[in-house]
Amino acid sequence: MIFHPAIIALLLSSFLITFLILYSSYFGLRIVRKWDIKSGSELQLNLERRTYLISTILAYVLGFQLFSLFLYIYTADNLHSLFVGAMCAAGTLNVNAYGYPTLILKVVNFLLAGLWLILNYTDNRAYDYPLIKKKYVFLLVIALFVTAEMIIQTNYLLRLKADVITSCCGSLFSTDTRGITSEIVALPSIPMKIAFYLGMAFTFVSGICFLKNSKLTGYVFSLASAVTFIISIISLISFISLYFYDLPTHHCPFCILQREYGYIGYLLYITILGGSVLGMGVGVVMPFRDIKSLSEILPSIQRRFAIISLVLYFLFTAVVTYRIVFSDFKLEGY
């Protein structure tokens, strides 16, 4: 292992987050089994109190998770000088097989924690807590993922050895090598651009339809925002990054987080992550619109989520489009 302060910080925080989540899921399990809102028994009063603790914990976990995602990338970026061939985070993450899975789990866990909080927010507005058991079953699933992240990240960090020869964004995000990333990079830019703008347009149209008549289009909007999230990440690697680097071959999704590019990557990632959590959240709570205690309040909650989600997606698209239009760099269509 490399004794680097940030590595210690990452390990420590993932242990703490896992501890908090496991602690919560212990009580979550009891809630799933013993919850009875009609009862005035002391057990029920106690469980009810625990729900406050668990909500608080999850809110913190969401924050920590987002922070640790960026710290993780930043650390990988910072450590690249220790590995032969690594020029940025992409290379460091590739030093062993656990680097990228950790990254993906960090994103997934952020999304999951966000969705949980959306469920929780909705549930807490209905006087009979109709989603309580579903919510805590879902928490158990999150606990699994968070634990997996902790284990895989620990593996990754403990197995980091200086002087390992690795390949970095130059080759990882290029067409020469095989694998998923090169497939993405090799995607022709014009169809990819069309896909990106179509995805965004579709999300906006379905979102606005949903806001207008708030019927089943909610599912469509939610699905659209999830798909658009994935398209956006692929586009980021495939063509968006090129405009920020002004280079025809640099496809790295991490370098845009650096100071040289004005930390613009943070804006891009935060808007797209936030937008997708809220957009997917609209769909996740959709099936509960018929529950009596939720039927009156849920539409307005969903509207709020949808509006914020659309605003964030719009910001993302606006920044990207601005760059594409005003950059001196011209990507020759291929």
Binding site: L12, L16, F67
Partner: peptide, 25 residues
């Protein structure tokens, strides 16, 4: 740089916060 500050944040503020969640509740 911001990176050092966020590392420090994880080494101090996060543990402090975790330690106080349950007592506050």
């Amino acid at each position: 740089d911001p990176y050092q500050v966020s590392t420090l944040f994880f080494l101090t503020v996060v543990p402090y916060t975790v330690a106080t969640i349950i007592p506050s509740w």
